[in-house]
Design a protein around this nucleic acid. Structure first.
Lengths: 220, 220
DNA sequence: CGGTTTCTTGAGTCGCCTCAACAATTGTGG
DNA sequence: CCACAATTGTTGAGGCGACTCAAGAAACCG
């Protein structure tokens, strides 16, 4: 299994000092962890549950910029304020670090900062993939890419389950893919009729073969 | 004027060591600086000209993930390979750093790494804004946001010109905004007819008032 | 169970895309 | 410097994929 938290896989002293900083926190489903433009006093490490990140336009249009699961890092904006809102999809537990103290620890242990930079770079690559999806993929390709992303991250977390867990609502999926809930629903129905997936229930989807999703996702 | 390069605004020793690493390089317009999936041996700092970054789908659909101008940093993927292609739009000059040597310098001067992390975080915030644009904005809002972005970055570079410099082709703009060239062209015409902008020539656009663009960009 | 929310499905519409022609600009060799 | 070709940008007509609006089905929940 991969290291699931920021704290783990670190050596003695660093680990101890990190543990001194963190507070364990919990959030119910649908509760807000922090708001866009709020002062960024903390960074988080999700230990269980799932989180959505989103930005809003003036008239309420919403774009979900990412989903987080156990092991994911949250709030690495080193700016003064958060650049998006973070909300729990299902009950969430997390480790919370005071940002300033964490930054001071960076000076002492540059290793930590390297780790942080690595995570930022990974997120950046994911963001670029998502831009390609939003700008250039069809509804079917978007939904296939989304399911594939969930499957891969689930595997990465060490969950060994044939069914893909889909904790988010159709509305969340739509706002993540730049579609409407109706189009998401219709596309899932279409994939089911084409026998690419089977819907066990609304929160669990089974891919008949991941390779079929992969081909769809890349428009092949 | 703001510090335009990675090297500048650094103190004595760091600055000297950085200068020892860098090579000055030039690229003609339309020439490729590096390809997606190529080994990421170098990072760059653009000193003049402009660059586009893009990703491709199997069938040739393209998404431009960003434009770079003087002062911008390029290739901060600390991964093994570049995650996108970088191509010069107009003749480009840049400083080139061997990635491995630069990383070793990070160990010596954590300050440099902090700087790098800060840049990655800024890029991440920009990427999230772009996701909102691609997923949820209309063609008109997209074009207005694009012009506004160019105007702000031009100002940030210290260029004091009423006209917005637009070095990229309609095709590049389209692939950046998730539109077609025809829609970009029509939208610019529409903005001109509504007296929001005036087109001096294809590479220079004047905004009648930035606030009109700001309102359009946010869908107000 | 009823009431509420979420999801699905259908019918009709619209914004952006496609295809096509033309205009403007750029580049090239004489 | 001009003639010509090639490229890039504009405009129009028509089509289509995803959206809107609306109704019903399913799931959730006290």
């Amino acid at each position: 299994m991969r290291d699931l938290t920021f704290c783990s896989a670190l050596h003695g002293e660093e680990h101890i000092r990190l543990r001194q900083l963190l507070t364990h926190v919990q959030y119910d489903g649908h509760s807000t962890i922090f708001h866009e433009a709020e002062e960024a006093d903390y960074v988080f490490n999700v230990t269980s549950g799932s989180v959505k990140l989103y930005k809003l336009l003036g008239d309420g249009r919403r774009q979900i910029t990412g989903f987080l699961f156990a092991g994911d890092f949250l709030g690495l904006a080193l700016n003064l304020t958060y650049s998006y809102t973070a909300e729990a999809i299902e009950p969430v537990t997390a480790c919370r670090f005071p940002r300033q103290k964490l930054e001071r620890l960076f000076d002492e242990f540059p290793r930590l900062e390297k780790r942080m930079l690595g995570m930022a770079v990974d997120e950046l690559a994911a963001a670029q993939d998502q831009m390609l999806l939003l700008g250039r993929k069809t509804a079917k390709e978007k939904v296939a890419s989304f399911l594939l992303m969930l499957a891969r991250r689930q595997e990465h977390r060490g969950v060994n389950d044939a069914a893909i867990e889909v904790p988010m609502s159709r509305s969340d999926i739509a706002d993540y893919l730049g579609l409407t809930i109706e189009t998401v629903s219709r596309t899932l129905t279409q994939l089911r009729k084409e026998a690419t997936i089977s819907l066990k229930d609304n929160k669990h989807i089974e891919a008949i073969g991941l390779s079929m999703l992969e081909d769809l996702a890349e428009g092949l």
